[in-house]
Nucleic acid binder design. Structure first.
Lengths: 244, 244
DNA sequence: TCCGTAGAAGTGGTTTGACCAAAAATTTAT
DNA sequence: ATAAATTTTTGGTCAAACCACTTCTACGGA
């Protein structure tokens, strides 16, 4: 993980240094100086007592700011020695890009990971799981037909998650779960999903049917191709949205 | 991963809660409770004053620990209200989970993920990164020649991590980091690594050279094949160990 | 009885000033 | 010039306050 310049708490989207908490304001100011290159990597910044005087706050407040900077990886605190700048300027990503993976990054990762997962699942999935998968698919079809696309997407998620689980690899499964959770926690991804939901009726039934078919035939290569084509299609919709 | 989300300062590889700094010890303890599920998302944890008494430290120290937790995204501090556990879609949270992936699961996931990552990296890696990669390789060769295999493995990790970073996909990078962290946190994996370290001189130089060569030629397919063959070889060593 | 408001209690935020341990710089002795 | 002893600097911790804001509670009016 890189570019942890998110000093503010999760949900708070505020102008830098406008936070009500003083130690976060100080942390923001210092982070800005670091990212602006005024404080270069390796450089030791002033002693806590000096910073306190400089910003006209207490030493404790400065300490809390420095701790925030350390945890976010910008700075290295060496007891008895000083505080040193670690990370060099990451301006490009600090402004437009978020520290969290963007929607397209998530989709690219899904393309690779879920593709491989589908291939593995084709070889390892049980008949019971296939039945469950079929049931999810049926639910999805029914809900899409009723225009209840939001609910249909619930089963979309279950469908993919079940395939991940069928790999019999908990590491793979955890990572795919994480990618889905990331998507849901990302405002931008949510926005995309919302827009797409209005344009199309819901999850692509055909694509899921094809994946299911390949899995039921234990066709690893086919399942991988079907899954990747499916995810690529969704990604394409994202890209089109960005173009607007 | 956010992680961003590691509480300990960058370079310090210490046993959890063994840090000399008290506030990091407290932060680790709280983080463990959160990740273990003892403190569930949405739950408000005890007031700073209470925590201070509970852990027998000053309130200030508790505050610094909480700030570290907030910056790393585990917790939400609401002034005047309290400190609340956030639901975190974090890979790190499952790191200490009971059903941690086994060594072979980790290796299988690495085979897939790092294979894909190598292919992506071949197309996106910069010349600077290639130089860095080469430097790691050189260090590795030198250390292996001096029988310092443990240190050589440090550069092994850096080598793989740099490739992950060259994918320009932070999701991919985070997941690969996670897999390596898992390996290091797994006793069984550590045991394997220890045994293997005694049998072979250190990281397989040839395999890494081949990977580097493919990357420098921007040969995506070759890089993927080389990476997968490398990881498969390590996995094979694991399997042989299990057979004994 | 219900409901809103004023007050009390609780919580994080900040300040001050002090002392400690370890690192770094300086002086001293060899 | 070098090594050891000493002083200084630096982060780490503790303590006791006070503030501003949130939350809870109990009172009083409808």
């Amino acid at each position: 993980m890189n570019d942890n310049t998110h000093l503010s708490p999760a949900g708070s989207r505020q102008t830098p240094a406008s936070n009500s908490r003083l130690y976060l304001q100080i942390a923001d100011k210092l982070a800005q100086q670091i990212n602006a290159g005024e404080l270069k990597p390796g450089m030791r910044l002033p002693a806590e007592r000096d910073l306190a005087q400089q910003y006209d706050v207490s030493r404790q407040t400065v300490r809390e700011a420095l701790i925030a900077l350390e945890v976010s990886g910008l700075v290295d605190i060496r007891p008895g020695s000083g505080v040193y700048v670690l990370q060099e300027a990451s301006l490009k990503s600090s402004l437009l890009a978020e520290n969290a993976p963007g929607p397209l990054e998530i989709m690219e990762a899904r393309l690779l990971l879920e593709g491989d997962a589908a291939a593995l699942a084709a070889e390892r999935i049980s008949n019971e799981e296939l039945l469950k998968l079929k049931a999810y698919l049926t639910q999805m079809i029914s809900l899409v037909a009723q225009q209840r696309s939001a609910e249909a997407e619930t089963f979309d998620g279950k469908f993919h998650q079940l395939i991940a689980s069928a790999t019999r690899n908990s590491a793979l499964q955890s990572m795919i779960e994480w990618l889905w959770a990331l998507r849901e926690s990302s405002e931008l991804s949510q926005l995309f999903a919302e827009k797409i939901r209005r344009q199309v009726a819901g999850p692509n039934i055909e694509a899921h049917e094809k994946i299911y078919l390949c899995l039921s035939r234990r066709d690893a290569a086919g399942a991988k191709a079907a899954m990747q084509s499916h995810i690529a299609q969704v990604t394409e919709a994202y890209v089109l949205l960005i173009g607007e």
